[in-house]
Design a protein around this nucleic acid. Structure first.
Lengths: 193, 193
DNA sequence: AAAATATGTTAACCTATATTAACATCATTT
DNA sequence: AAATGATGTTAATATAGGTTAACATATTTT
């Protein structure tokens, strides 16, 4: 069942007892969204952190001229949320929208402190997954500074081969920080090489 | 004394008992570096996470053509380290170098697990500071995508007015992801407006 | 199956920022 | 105080990537 993938994921980082597993499940909820639906909208306050059981989402910022900038995709066994909004309960900078029908498990702000009281080792679990996410974003900043769009694309393709199959190219362009037109031109150049 | 700034900083997030404070101090070490010295070099494995008591550091990546890309400055009451290298004990992507004489307090990889056993609430402390750092880097990625260099500079200046006084401009240019020459041109344009 | 919508390509032209190189100024060392 | 090194400026030229607009091809919806 759907909760098993979450338990497997957590157990790989901090092993839980059966009792803790049962307790944990009383704190979370399962939810399904359809392709196109928003899990979070910019300006709203994030009430949930989401673990994705199946499907695919994008997190993006809409700038003053209406352009979308994708900063994160998430598929099975990944997490998504505007963490800044969640932890300080302030308006979100980001939208989270489903690009496939998506099933996910939600951790809610209203009871996450109680969950940490109930299962203190989850504090360590969340520390570790945030550490990994932080390292990934820091590396992305450097790559955006030091590499060309073409080099960043090759790294993206090699790092997330599954994603390239599931996601429209104009979204990959947005994730790379370039326009879809330039992305198209770039790929043609790559083929010629 | 120097350790007090660390204790104050931690107590603001997770209040410690006197006993815990004493315990904590047996796990950390104070160290001084001179301007120009490296706290960590790219390729080495980070053994420490550092809390800065006084002074100023830059963390940067040297790319294949030898160019420096600064991804973080740190002054009093900030943290610095290559977290990716520290948590997985792999070669660092970043250098950390002092741009002023710097005094700092080090948390070592070899005893940080023991420290978490001794004072479990530090797990929460580190989770919270990493969360904040993560949010900051994610916002930086969006700004790099959606704003011009001029807009990013104005935000930098407004967010860290102390930093602009202490740090040479060519390093601020590097932090913004532009060349020092373009930074110079940009500032002249800003004055004219 | 036609219409509508979403996705992808191409090409002409444009702009923000990089590169190179020369020079200016300031701080530190001898 | 001269010399050295670190920092900052200017200007000419170059380029990665953006913009606009038209068209092409899938994929859904009716």
């Amino acid at each position: 069942m759907a909760f098993q993938s979450l338990l497997d994921y957590i157990n790989a980082v901090v092993p839980l007892t059966k009792k803790e597993e049962t307790t944990l499940l009383t704190y979370v909820t399962k939810r399904k969204y359809l392709k196109g639906q928003f899990i979070l909208q910019q300006g709203d306050i994030a009430q949930q952190e989401c673990f994705i059981v199946s499907g695919c989402t994008k997190m993006f910022h809409s700038d003053h001229s209406g352009q979308e900038h994708i900063i994160l995709f998430a598929i099975e066994n990944w997490w998504t949320s505007d963490i800044g909004s969640f932890i300080s309960q302030t308006p979100a900078d980001f939208n989270v929208q489903c690009i496939e029908d998506t099933e996910l498990i939600q951790f809610s702000y209203h009871n996450i402190e109680a969950l940490f009281e109930a299962i203190p080792k989850l504090e360590r679990f969340f520390r570790k997954i945030i550490e990994k996410a932080f390292v990934a974003t820091q590396k992305r900043i450097v790559r955006n500074f030091s590499l060309s769009a073409k080099e960043r694309y090759v790294i993206f393709r090699d790092t997330y081969p599954e994603l390239e199959q599931r996601i429209p190219q104009y979204m990959i362009a947005s994730y790379l920080g370039i326009t879809k037109e330039f992305f198209s031109k770039m790929k043609r150049q790559l083929l010629k090489e």
